[in-house]
Amino acid sequence: MRSPICSSTASPNASGPGGSASRCWPPRVLRHLGAKVLPHLMAGSKDAETVSAFFQDMRGRWLGDPLLVVCDGAAGIIKAIETCFPRSERQRCLAHRRRNLAAKVPEDRWPEFKARATAAYQAPSRAIARDLAAGLVKDYEAELPSAVACFMDDFEAAIAHLKMPITHRRAIRTTNLLERLFVEERRRLKIIPNAFGEKPALKLMFGSMIRAAERWRAIRITDFERRQMTAVRQVSIRNTRPETASTRMQRQRSPARICPAVPGLDPTARASWPPMRRRPPRPTYGGLK
C-alpha cells in the first residue's frame, strides 16, 4: 500500500452504548489517487498507549507514513502521532481550535477576533500566517490574554496544511468529515439500551460508518499537485533523517533539480528533487545480453 496523503483521526466525546466510557477510533485516509477511505475501527480511550497500538495495527497492515495527520488537541493523540509517524506533518483541527477560542472570547468581540484568526489560519503561506498571528497577538494580548494564549498554542501545527496544495487545504484542515460519522453512529445507537458487549456495538457502528463513508467524494489530484507534495515529502524526510557522509556524498555527486516556485506554496517547502533513477542493467542469459 502506498503512503497516504492525509490521515485524519478523531474521537467522539460521547460514551458508548450502555453508559460505557470506551470510545471508537475511526481514521480517514486520503489515498494518493484522491479517494477517501475508512481503513480501521477500534474501541479505546485517548491515552497514548491505546492510540499508539491503534496506529501500529494499521502500520502492520502496510500503512505507510502519511504526508499529513489531522487530529484534535488531545495530548495522548499528539504523542502517539509523533511517536508512530515521525516523518508526517501534524495538523491541528481548526474546527476544534475555533470552538476553544469561542469559549474564551466575549460574544461582542468574537466576530472580529474570529475573522482575524481565520485569516491567519487560511493565509496563502506560513510566512504570511505568522505575520498575521503576530499582529493579532499585539492587538489582543493585553485585552484577551487567555484567548491569545490559546491561539498561539501549537500554532505551527494549526498552519501545517498551508504546505499542501491550495485545492486540498479545505478538506485536510479539520476532522469534520469524521465528526459527521459520529452523528450517524449516535443516531443508530441511542435507541439501544444495551449493546450486549463491545463486539456487537463495533459491528453496528462499523456498518453505519462504512455506509456513510461510501458517499465520500474523492479529491482530484493533478500531476502538478503531486510534484508539490513530493517536495513536501522530501523536506520532511531530510528534517527527520540525519544526513550521513554517504548520503551527503551522493547528494553532491548527483545534480539536483530544484523545484520551481509555485504560487501559494510555502517557499520553505521548495526542495531538491531526487535524481533520476538509472535504468537497471539488462539481464544476462549464459553470457549473452
Rank of each mutant, 00 (worst) to 15 (best):
V105W: 06
W62T: 10
E107W: 01
F54K: 03
E107F: 00
D65R: 04
D57L: 10
F54P: 01
E82W: 00
T83H: 12
A95Y: 04
F85E: 04
R98T: 04
P106C: 14
L94W: 01
E89V: 02
R98L: 13
L63H: 10
I81R: 01
V51C: 12
A80V: 03
L38T: 14
L67K: 06
L101Q: 04
F55L: 04
L67R: 09
P39G: 11
A53M: 05
P86S: 13
M42N: 12
W62R: 14
P39S: 07
P106Y: 13
V105T: 13
Q91S: 08
H40D: 12
I77Q: 02
G60I: 10
A43Q: 12
V105F: 03
T50A: 14
D65S: 09
R87F: 02
A95V: 12
P86K: 13
R99N: 03
R92C: 10
C93I: 03
R99I: 03
A80C: 08
P86G: 14
D57T: 14
K104N: 05
R92D: 07
L63Q: 11
C71G: 05
R92F: 11
H40M: 05
L67A: 13
P66H: 03
A102P: 00
R61P: 06
N100E: 02
A95K: 01
V105Y: 05
M42W: 07
L68G: 06
A103D: 00
P39L: 06
K104G: 06
I81A: 08
P39Y: 10
A80I: 04
F85L: 08
P39F: 08
I78K: 09
F55G: 07
R98N: 02
C93D: 02
H96A: 05
A80D: 03
I78V: 09
L41F: 09
Q91L: 05
R59P: 01
K46T: 12
R90A: 07
A102T: 01
Q56W: 10
V51A: 13
A102I: 00
E107G: 09
T50S: 15
H40Y: 13
K104F: 01
V69H: 01
G60M: 08
D47L: 14
S45E: 14
M58C: 12
V105R: 00
A74H: 11
C84S: 10
A43C: 15
K79P: 00
P39Q: 04
W62P: 01
D47K: 15
A75Q: 09
E49T: 15
C93L: 01
V37T: 15
L41R: 07
C84R: 00
F54A: 11
E49S: 15
A43M: 13
I81T: 09
A103R: 08
